[in-house]
Design a protein around this nucleic acid. Sequence first.
DNA 1: ATGGTAGGAAGCCTA
Length: 256
Amino acid sequence: MRIATWNVNSVKARLPHLRGYLREEAPDIVLLQETKVVDEAFPALEIEELGYNVAVHGQKTYNGVAILAKRPIEDVVRGLDGDAADGQARYMEGTVGTVRVASIYLPNGNPVGTDKFAYKLSWMARLRDRVKELLEEEETCVLGGDYNACPADIDVYDPPAFADDALCRPETRNLFRSLVFLGLTDAVRAFHPEPGVYSYWDYQRGAWPKDHGLRIDHLLLTPPAADRLRAADVDRRPRGREKASDHTPVWCEIEE
DNA sequence: ATGGTAGGAAGCCTA
């Protein structure tokens, strides 16, 4: 089965592109981020008519995640434990067949030195706590999303320019590494160790035509899922279209 | 050249 993750930067603005992607690529599961819509206003019918089930966790204006799947989505959990006061819609889980998936929109954290950066780091620690539980349960789990973290300099078109950015700071990379070192496999990295495998290009300064990208969208797999991993890659095509999201889909193939 | 663009909201914030 193929599982994709895509930060669509508004599901309403991207609905024609999203529908085209579902029709042409037809992944079994799609994890969405930055849907930017309350649950009641999510365009569920337009997606269901293409043969997908829909589970959503949204809010007004900002954030918002969703899971789309051809098969039923069961045992949906919304939100991340560890901070009862956190009202931002950035995390959800669901089970599709034998695979538990999570759709993750990790805080950006810029500018560094503000409460936004502190929120990012504490959010990453909460995610790590949740991943520990999933590993202890020996779940076949695919954690996909916009991690707002470049794991290494090879994931950045201009490392010196991003040295002090929240996406590349040592604190961010240390927490990302501590997450992966629990025993997760970075699916795209496993198949593409080379530099320049980007998933995001800024709207500004002609970043896309100049290939000034970052790799910040990831699929992290628990060992039972990694055992079944057969392929993974970035699909650059959607980023090149008119009215594109600034992110492009990342996918992996898991043996049934 | 401390800029630039996109989206949603509402006359700015987030990215």
